[in-house]
Amino acid sequence: MIIDTHMHLGEIIGYCNYPFNIEKQIQVMDEVGILYGFSAHNIAIGADDFEYAEDEVAKAYEMSGGRIMAFHFFDPRETDRSLYFMEKHKKDPAYIGIKFHPSMSYTDAADERYRPSWEFAKENKLPIMSHTWDLSLTNFKQKYSHPTAFVKYLEEYPEVPFIMGHSGGRYNGVRAAVEVGKRFPQVYFDLAGDLVAAGLAKYLVDNVGDRRIFYASDYCMMDPRTTIGTVLGADIPMETKERIFWDNAAEVFGLSEK
């Protein structure tokens, strides 16, 4: 079985994509062998519609029999509203962590406005997962999510597991993420991505060990049948692939097979 630590609920606008549908998401998970998927709602990330996201998270959790869980989305520009929903659902088993997207929130990951979410994660023993990416010549917002921008909070909150979504992104972002990961043992790496540099999974294993890497698809934007190739084609032992697909995330998120 597989745990997918980077999925999304909800449609994404911008390019032609499938209309979002929870039934379809469950079908996709079954097809690839994904037992649990951790989603962040695109409508919350892109439009701060927390109410809409709240309803769909509840539906997805119920319809999937607890298999589709969610990250609370924290927008540093909407601290009070974000915290309201986080507080409201802090004992709700549908929520498994906190998600940032500094690029979509146009706010650097080191900004002081993130502090309440790190405090919340510490108090409630929740991991934080964030979009991370390399500096981009075509998308300036990616600078807000550069792996090094998280160092300030990683130093202050060593007890909070932190997942670098996309492992820092592309090539230089990944190298930067790995350097941060070497300093901070609470840092984990997810393999979500669209264009994946050759040797990514092996590079992560060789540099941060086989216990800190999670399989991740970025569904419903990316196709999980594509992203599993990052692991299946990697020059790493089969036991390591099994760890990436299941054991590592199961240990961090406290999950077991049904």
């Binding site: 994946v196 049948r225 190739g229 084609g233």
Partner: peptide, 18 residues
């Protein structure tokens, strides 16, 4: 595949598992 830059297995699974 866009190898040697990218990971060819991704292009393979996108077709093989479609």
């Amino acid at each position: 595949s866009y190898a040697v830059y990218n990971e060819p297995a991704i292009s393979i699974t996108s077709i093989a598992f479609a």
